[in-house]
Design a protein around this nucleic acid. Structure first.
Lengths: 127, 127, 127, 127
DNA sequence: GTGGTCTAGACCACT
DNA sequence: GTGGTCTAGACCACA
């Protein structure tokens, strides 16, 4: 499914969140599909169940999955993952920040554009 | 000069670093110019002197400023800010992350490209 | 008859209980009427029979239905649903909780009263 | 400040959340005021720090407080606690649910109105 | 079996 | 000192 990098600076729970977002948005996991249980996922990734649960809670709050007590956790319909204007503004802001880092390094605009184009094209499936 | 946002999730020291990089790279502060002392800066921003100290140390390590014992701290020539391969990789990685957020929100590639173009063009002075 | 929402945070068994209460109190189901069997109900709602079983047990304890061994389950006379003081206190408490949520959202008392009046009037048949 | 009821069915973290909302919305705690640290609050209430932190995270997500790493947690300006239409609809829905419980008990509409009026008036400070 | 909550205790980064 | 993350292990309600 996916693996986590315990050496990364990015918290494990956040890595789990991002990996699931990736799987859901790219269509690998479809609406209604069951998500591995907290315990199973914890065993697979060899992390603590609490860490997985924290990730699932985040995904639920952001509308990617939903929970039915005693039955399990499932992928939410993509329609309900409606992009909030504030979320988009937040994301734009983060892109701006990241681009600034390139600017600070003295990279030319042309080079920056080339680098960003590469990163965009890394996602071959992006429509 | 600039202000810090205490409500931001970004650490204050990092905010100070980024703001100075902005001022230096954009040419508002020029090589040789004196940088406010740690104490003065701390007073202006009403933050802990240790926090400013830490920011200055980071800026010095990355070559944006230099310290002359007993005289103060000064802006380094921008040319000496040599982009380290690891710094570029780090920046690339942050751009990749930020772009992913746009992707997760279900934004089309075309829209994303448009958004990024806008952000790049915000810096009219970027060569 | 009615449907359950698997995405809801409210337990399925509780949803079944509330839906039956609604049907009985509003007069759609009348005293003496046969209630679908546990198995049939479970099949209709595509839920676990144990869940339906639990809901029926609750309804029986609260006096909304009664079971006749070997014959089935039937709707009790609404008059026999005697409001227990503790049940009323429980309900009051839930209303208090719900009203608090409106308060937390910064809604004015006047607006809250209007909203509640609307909700009360939604039940046109309430004597 | 307030106390928690360990015997309550309501989770401790939720009790903490509600109590703080009460203090903030009622004006007892004002914007910019420092909220007791996670550890101090945990000691006062004799609960685990993790439980307090969970509550604080919830309050932050809902816009009641904000966090500044290393400095502490503070009360957010009430303006930023802008009621989202979906939040209001959610609250309305909960009020509707709670009112239904009264209806199920066979209480007359008049009695229900009286009960609700009492509950509304419990908050003497509600404008 | 499922998720949800809580405790106890450790480690880290920021101020 | 502050909050943030993680582990380990226990208990509960729901299905």
């Amino acid at each position: 499914m996916f693996e986590i990098d315990v050496k990364s600076r990015k918290p494990i729970s956040e890595q789990i969140v991002d990996n699931f977002k990736e799987l859901i948005v790219s269509g690998v996991m479809v609406a209604g599909e069951k998500v591995p249980s907290v315990r199973e996922m914890a065993a697979r990734l060899t992390v603590n169940p609490n860490t997985v649960q924290k990730a699932y809670r985040t995904l639920e709050q952001q509308g990617y999955i939903y929970t039915s007590a005693g039955r399990g956790t499932f992928v939410e319909s993509p329609d309900s993952v409606e992009a909030q204007p504030q979320d988009i503004e937040q994301a734009r802001s983060e892109v701006r920040e990241a681009i600034s880092k390139l600017y600070y390094l003295g990279i030319s605009k042309k080079e920056a554009e080339k680098t960003i184009k590469e990163l965009l094209d890394e996602r071959g499936d992006w429509k």
